[in-house]
Simulated assay, not measured.
Amino acid sequence: MVVGEHLSYLFDDPQAAQFLAGIAEVCVSEDLGMVLIPTRGDATDVDRVLSAAVDCYVLWTTVAGDPVLAAVAASGRPAAIQGGPAQPGLVCIAPDDRAAAAAVAAATPLAEAVPVIISFPLDRRRTSGVLRGDELPLDLTDLQAVPFPVTGARLAGYRDALTEAGHDWGDVRIAVVERNQRERGEDAAAALLETLEGSGPVVVLAMSDELALGARSALGGTRRKVTITGWDASREATTSGVWSVSASLREQGRACARAALSGALEGHQVPWSVVAPERRPDTGR
């Protein structure tokens, strides 16, 4: 497994652990082991990945243009990648993140509220901060220029739903976080709240349940009516009043492992659904 994150992230983040567990389940059933290979975005990545004594690869959380992608594709060893970026020679396993993001956003009272977004990183340097839609530091005509394809697809889906609801994308506030961590979501929500005027309702579109739960903690004391969305449909999020998207990362881990082991030539799209919260609060709490 080739991962563009610190190795500890695989065990600290609940959904990363689910993805890893899905791969492990297939390895156990096939009587195989697993090697974890981190990449850092430097000149040593390709040699580290290609020198590993492995039969196939599963890649996760990398960026468009990463030389590791082309190197793995040319290695002759079968490989699968979760979520992209698409690369000839690699099987891609992913849900339709754009459609799912649009659907979960549209499930909220967008037309009556001010929307804000808590986004995964937009670049490999993981620059954080609060931006407006028209200040995103890339040519985002269709939002495919974002190096992290999952981030780009979800931003595109949010934009689709927001413009459909009558919002000006250029005015939408977007807090970009460095890591997918609950405390980052809490800080981002607090920073976004400072940019808003008045006391009207707010919809927070967060790219994960961890970020959504952090936002919920930050906004619990506000007088505003707050609706929050996340991603991954964790039990904690849905029982805390968070709308979410279900697209099992454990199953995606299994699918990636099976595709890599079989030498499959074509990937498949992962089923997804919008999950309503079990408790729908009248306030942000």
Score class of each variant (00 low, 15 high):
Cys256Glu: 08
Ala102Thr: 09
Ala73Asp: 08
Leu90Glu: 06
Ala24Phe: 02
Val54Ser: 07
Arg182Tyr: 01
Ser51Val: 02
Thr227Ala: 11
Leu131Arg: 13
Val203Leu: 02
Thr61Phe: 14
Gly284Ile: 02
Gly84Arg: 09
Leu20His: 04
Gly185Ile: 08
Asp55Glu: 15
Pro14Ala: 10
Val68Lys: 10
Asp123His: 06
Arg173Pro: 00
Asp168His: 13
Ile81Ala: 05
Ala255Asn: 02
Ala218Phe: 06
Pro85Trp: 02
Pro147His: 04
Ser119Cys: 12
Met1Asp: 02
Gly263Asn: 03
Leu261Cys: 13
Phe19Lys: 01
Glu197Val: 14
Ala103Tyr: 07
Leu36Asp: 06
Arg285Asn: 11
Asp209Phe: 02
Leu10Gly: 13
Gly89His: 11
Leu10Ala: 11
Glu25Lys: 08
Gly89Cys: 09
Asp13Arg: 10
Gly230Leu: 06
Glu197Leu: 14
Arg154Glu: 08
Leu110Val: 08
Val46Met: 09
Ala233Asp: 15
Gly133His: 12
Asp96Glu: 11
Val204Cys: 01
Gly200Cys: 06
Pro277Asp: 13
Glu278Gln: 15
Ala264Arg: 13
Glu186Pro: 00
Ala175Ser: 13
Cys92Asp: 07
Ala175Phe: 11
Arg250Gln: 13
Val114Cys: 05
Glu178Ala: 15
Glu135Gln: 15
Ser240Pro: 05
Thr127Val: 10
Ala212Tyr: 08
Tyr57Gln: 01
Arg280Glu: 13
His268Met: 12
Ala94His: 00
Pro277Gln: 09
Val3Lys: 02
Pro109Val: 05
Asp209Ala: 02
Arg279Ile: 12
Gln15Lys: 05
Ala255Leu: 13
Ala86His: 10
Ala237Pro: 12
Asp12Gly: 10
Gly152Met: 06
Ala218Lys: 03
Val116Leu: 06
Val49Trp: 08
Thr127Ile: 07
Gln15Ser: 14
Val204Glu: 04
Gly170Met: 13
Val242Ile: 15
Thr229Cys: 14
Leu138Lys: 01
Trp231Met: 12
Glu197Phe: 07
Gly166Ala: 03
Gly41Asn: 11
Val114Arg: 07
Val176Tyr: 06
Met34Ser: 04
Gly263Asp: 03
Val275Tyr: 00
Phe120Cys: 03
